[in-house]
Structures are given as C-alpha cells and as structure tokens.
Nucleic acid binder design. Structure first.
Lengths: 363, 363
DNA sequence: ATACCCACTGAATCACGAT
DNA sequence: AATCGTGATTCAGTGGGTA
C-alpha cells in the first residue's frame, strides 16, 4: 500500500487517496492551497430569495459546510501522518474557507505557530462599493503538534533580509501577474488561482533546508514545485487534473536552480558548534586567574583553571555566575562577560568567535 | 422576560443571559471582543529577563475547544437574534480563537462580508526567535444572513478619508498605549486587553449612522461606549465584572461628543514604509545569485534568495555585511551597495525608490 | 528648553540536546 | 520519559530623570 516518496514527481489522482499511499513521517514541509469549495458556493447561492423558514435555511447551509469540513479533515489528517516530527504545514485560504480549515487544523492536533497575512499589493477592487477591498489572504503555519518544538525556522536569515528586524506576520507581495502567470495558446490564464512564487519562496526559505522534501497536495500548475527546484529543495506534487499536471511538468522542467551558495542555510548562533568555556582557557585566549567584568563594569569574577568562575564564595559556570551576580534566573554568560584587551572591553563571545575561526571546526 | 433596550447603559451579569433579555431585531451594530482562549502555559521573559505580563485571567480559561465552541455559539446565536435585519457584526480575535469564531459565525447563518486585519504598528516582538512576530489581529465583519443586503456601509466616506482609494481589508493602527490606556491609582493597566479607540472608531464610521445603537457584549472598560458617544452613536454594554463596568462608566462620562458636523471618517495615519531588501529580491529588481559591489568596486558580495548577502564564510544583512567588509562598526547597506545596470553602477537605494514608486504602499 | 539615556511595556499558545 | 545544563533571545513607543 505505502510506496516510497515519489520525489520530484507529480502524482495524478484524488488527493486523499494519493496521500494514503505516501509513507508516514516522510516529508519536511507541506504547502497546501486547497479549493474554496465551489460546491458550497453553489449551494449558498441557490435562488431562494423568498424569506423562507430560517431554520431550514440554516440546516441546508450547515449540511453543505459539513461536506467541506469532512473533505478538509480527510486531507489534513493524512497530511499530518505524512509529516516528519520536525515538519510544518502552511495552508492558504480566504475568509470563505480559512476559518473552517483553521478549526480542523486545531481539532486534528496541529499546533498553530502563526497566522500570516498576505497583503496584496494590487488586489482586485470591490466594484459595487459594498465592502472593504478584499486585499489579503490568510496562511496558517502549524507544527505537527504541541510538543513538536524543534521545527525548522530560519529566524536569523529572515531577520537579516528584513532590515535586521524580525519578520512579521504580515507579508506585502504583489499578485501573480505578467510574465510569471501561465497562459495558454489563446492567452487565457491556465489556472484561476495561481499563487506568486515569492509567497511560496518566503515560506520555503523560512521553514525548510536545502534538500528537504516539500509536499503540495493541491499542486495545480506547480508553483510549489518550481520554487522548490529553484531553491534547491525537492517536491512531491499531488494533482487531480492531468491538464494542470502537464502544465506544471513543462513549467518545472524550464526552471534553472539557483547557485547553491545563494540558497544554503545560513549559519546561526544556534547551529554553530558549542565551545566549552574551558577551551578558551586551555588555548590561552583567556588566562586562568584573569578577571571578567560585565559591559558596565558593575560586576566582576575570576576565571579558574577548570573553566569555572568564582565570585566570593560562589563558584559556577559563566552562565550560573552571571545570573547570580545579577539576581536573574538565567543569563547568557558569553554575551554578559568581558575581558580587557588593549585597553578596551571585549566580550568573551568575540573570543569564542576567534576560537571557532582558529579551529574552523566542522559543524 | 424581554425588556426595552438599556440605551447608553452597562448591564452587569453573564453575557448570554443578558443577551436573552434584549429585544429581537433591535440593535444596529454589534462589536464583540470575546475571550481569545490563549492557552498559555509557562511564564515568558524578555531577553533582559523582565517578565511579560500575560493574560492569565479566569475569564480567558476554557477546559477544551468544545467548551469554547459551545460558549461561542451561545453568545453569537443571541447576538444574531438581537440584530436588526440591516445590522452587521464585528468580532475581533487572534489565531487562537478566530477560526473557531468564524466557523460558528458561518454555521449560525451569518454572511461574512470581509475579514479585516488589524496590522499593529508596534506589536510585541517574538522574544525567543521561534516564530514570526505576531503582528496582527483579525476582525470578522458579517451581515445577519446572505439575504441581508441593505446593511449600512459608508463606502464613500471611507474612500474620501483614504486618499480617495477604497478602504482595504488591512488596517494599520498602533496599540492602545500612553494617555489612552486606562491605569489604576498604582499605575497598573485596568484591563489587560484594552483596544485602541481608532480601531473601533473605524468600524463604527464604516457601518453605523449617527444615533444608531451599538451593542458590545464584552464591554470591558467601555472602549466601544466611549467611541460611540464621541461619534454621536448610542451604546448598550454587557459586562460581567463590576470593576470593569465602574471604570467604563467613569470613562464614558468624561467623553465629550464631537460636533455633529465632525462625525465622519477619520483620516488614516500614514508613515514612510520600510522596504525589506528581501522585497527587492522577491520582486526581481535584484536577482538571487547576483553580485553587489561598492561604489569604488573594492568590495563585492553575493545576494542570497533569503535577502541576505554572503562574502566568504560570512552571511548577514546588507548593513551587517557592508560594515564587515569595510571593518566599520556600522554601515547603511542601501547607499553602500551597487549593482551593474546597463554598464554602469546603480545604488540599491535607487532600486528601493523604484520599488516604492511601483507599489505606492499604504502604510 | 533640549537632548540624551534608561526603564518599562504590549492578547504570547516563545529552546533544546545530552544523559 | 524526565531531568538538567547550556545558552539563545526584542521592537516601537512612552515617560521620567539627568546632563
């Protein structure tokens, strides 16, 4: 029944059935752009203008929503099974369906990390002037469960690309138009809801590493596959419509991957190898017996030969002693403590950098 | 059982019970700010070790999603009964609860007109660097039913106050801080989740006429009442906590109604939008993998897909890497770095100008 | 008066690997 | 599975005090 992952391929057929054939805990990210349920829209716009019994009306509506909810729960449950413990899920939708999707996400045990707003630079105006311009769509970003805490998230890379401030939950991006929009020979758009590559690229950059497998259960014309290939990720696409799948295949074949140096995971403090403070003492970058001070020279401590610090009667790690002298529950000793070098204060974190550079340790 | 509307009064007691005593089809707008069911576990500290003052009030604790859903359906059903046929409903929430609220809104037969995003000018950062900054909340705006087409909406006024362009579904507003935030004698905030008046004002300007009755079933410290009075509308407030109700009463008493001629759409606040370098890469103005150089072509760096630069082993923002290659403590990457265009060097600041011009973004 | 510095704050589902 | 030690992590804004 279960088959190996069809890497960089498009699987034709019903999305839920195809998902059932994928192995458990095998993909690193899911990007899903599910249908808005046209059947539901049909049911709700049924010509019944006379003000009939409201209860009947409600029941009819609820029955239609129930069908959409069943479908949503089916594909989301299979997605969750297929996700690695470190994987996350993106789902995009609008107010027509996103509330039902979000409820299902929570009910199935996913743990929502953020909802993200795609603010459209060039939305379709509201022609009749009866509503606000519908200028955004919503993405839900969720981990597999409440206890799935070590998901991939390139916080530092996103921050560095965003004026050195945290990436927010509202993303301003243009619609998919112009060159990027797939057109058929007659100039008609191939898919009605093609998403911009930039949107999916930001999701992939945030939550995957190069080589990771990205599953898109509603592949359409393959935007997720095209972005994955460009960014050095792999993909698995599920699609029901052979015409969309053909268009996607041709599109992805034409994609040129970026240079690996442009897409590799940037080093972060979290991913760099740990250096024991003792190593700095052993290497002579810091001398046993030397005095450490904080940046304001309010507190000081003495370095012992075993890599611990001493203040009065207290002995402990750079972190423990840093916390102690400040009266805090915790402290990052690397950034708190400094030494005097050439008349000015240098943080021991900088010396740790020197040590790393000197030994150029493989991570 | 049913009583006349308690106009411009605060009704003490359980929200659902109080709603049951209000007459059917009697109010013109409902603004609801229900508990979010945050599900917070441990304490959270900032990087400086200070404690985040979290919402840990009893009123926000629910045993399960099912219990929260029951509560949500109960108050929403009564709200729908109380609404005039021309009335609309605003509900505000975050990703913790808004999907469940939206599902209930749809199941009860409301007709969603828009979801609206309140983009916070000054949100609380993500202190652990494990998620995107949670920088927005969501409002659902709904009519009583799909057939309720003649609801109040001041399209023209909003457009006139918005640089003569349609008001979008994303609203950029600061948090409620400073003078506006209610404090007790000891200087502590009276209510943990007081909303900015500007947010509710925009909703009331959009969807009510002067003299209309605005019902707020979770009145708290009465922001809705204060805004209604200021804008020449009337209010009905339901509140469980007598201390909140007292604060609200005093607050509203101090409000001076605006001159009737001034009760129109408020102009929106505008600021120069900050452009992330990533946006230039995403938009294609600069290509991932492209080389940046300084004006004297002494230094160069490669652009990565995530909007960072790479030089040798170093990866960072345009500013950080610019500083690094020059050996300076800081650098304005926008003016330092250039790209080759048509045989001559163009600063990326110029490209940023092109981007701004192209998108003329609403802040 | 003005400028600068520091402390404080906001609806928050906020670490992770070794043992 | 649970515990423990290391050590990673913040933005826009208000307001008070000091130079």
């Amino acid at each position: 029944m279960e088959q190996p992952l069809p890497i960089d391929q498009i699987v034709l057929g019903d999305c839920v059935e195809s998902l059932r054939r994928l192995p458990s805990e095998s993909v690193d990210l899911i990007f899903a752009d599910p249908p808005y349920n046209l059947q539901l829209e049909g049911a709700l716009t049924r010509p019944d203008n006379s003000l009939v019994d409201a209860v009947d009306d409600d029941w009819d509506r609820f029955a239609s929503f129930a069908e959409y909810d069943d479908f949503t729960r089916a594909w989301l449950a299979e997605c969750r099974r297929v996700m690695k413990k470190t994987a996350t899920l993106f789902v995009i939708g609008s107010y027509h369906n996103i509330f039902r999707v979000g409820t299902a996400v929570q009910d199935l045990g996913f743990w929502i990390l953020n909802d993200i707003v795609w603010r459209k630079a060039n939305p379709m105006p509201n022609f009749r002037g009866r509503r606000f311009t519908n200028a955004h769509e919503t993405l839900i970003w969720a981990a597999r469960g409440m206890d799935a805490r070590n998901y991939t998230f390139h916080y530092e890379a996103l921050k560095a690309g965003n004026e050195d401030t945290q990436m927010r939950s509202d993303w301003f991006l243009p619609l998919c138009t112009g060159e990027e929009r797939l057109k058929d020979a007659a100039g008609r758009k191939v898919h009605p809801t093609q998403k911009p590559e930039a949107l999916i690229a930001r999701a992939l950059i945030a939550a995957t590493n190069p080589g990771d497998v990205v599953l898109d259960p509603f592949f359409g014309t393959g935007t997720t596959g095209a972005v994955a290939k460009k960014l050095g990720r792999r993909f698995v696409g599920l699609e029901r419509d052979p015409a969309y799948a053909d268009a996607a295949r041709a599109r992805i074949a034409a994609v040129e991957p970026l240079d690996p140096r442009a897409v590799s995971a940037a080093p972060s403090r979290r991913t760099e190898p740990r250096i024991p403070f003792l190593s700095l003492v052993e290497s002579g970058l810091i001398a046993a017996g030397e005095t450490l001070v904080d940046a304001h020279e309010k507190h000081c401590a003495t370095v012992r030969a075993d890599g611990t610090l001493v203040v009065g009667p207290a002995v402990g790690s750079i972190h423990k002693v840093g916390a102690l002298v400040q009266g805090h529950p915790s402290c990052n000793g690397w950034t708190f403590w400094h030494v005097l070098r050439d008349g000015s204060l240098v943080s021991i974190d900088e010396l740790r950098g020197d040590y790393r550079a000197r030994h150029s340790m493989a991570a």
